[in-house]
Amino acid sequence: MEEKILLIDDEAEFVETLAARMRARKMTVTTATSAVEALGRDDVDAYDAIVLDLQMPGMDGLAALEEIKKRNPKLQVILLTGKATVEKGVKAMKMGAMDLLEKPADIEELTEKIKEAGGRKMVLVKEASENEIKEIIGSKSW
């Protein structure tokens, strides 16, 4: 499976270099240098994982995470941070982040997390479809 990733970080050079490394690992990567730019896309629901910088000017990572989860709780978000405080990390996990990695992150660890995110999303989508089918069947009086 070729994972589809949305990578958001205000450091343009970081985001493009990491994207190149992910593409070399057979992932499809879209980049954005702000949360506003990323959330303005009309295909946000289509990504297997959203990799998000915690500290960004304007809308920060936590605000973006909240917005993403509000739009689609099935979306899997991995936060990257230059300085991970325990407090912020706990808050992010409570808000539904899949994981939080500290920069500089290990590419193999990040790749593993992304694959895990893809798997989790697939399970959630499958469960949602099954529930929808059950509801339709249950509502019919055959």
Binding site: F14, G82, K103, P104
Partner: peptide, 21 residues
Amino acid sequence: VSHEIKNMLAIINETAGLLDD
């Protein structure tokens, strides 16, 4: 300042990794 330096180290880390790739 440490946050800024970490960001720069992250870019150096990814660039060195890309070179390795």
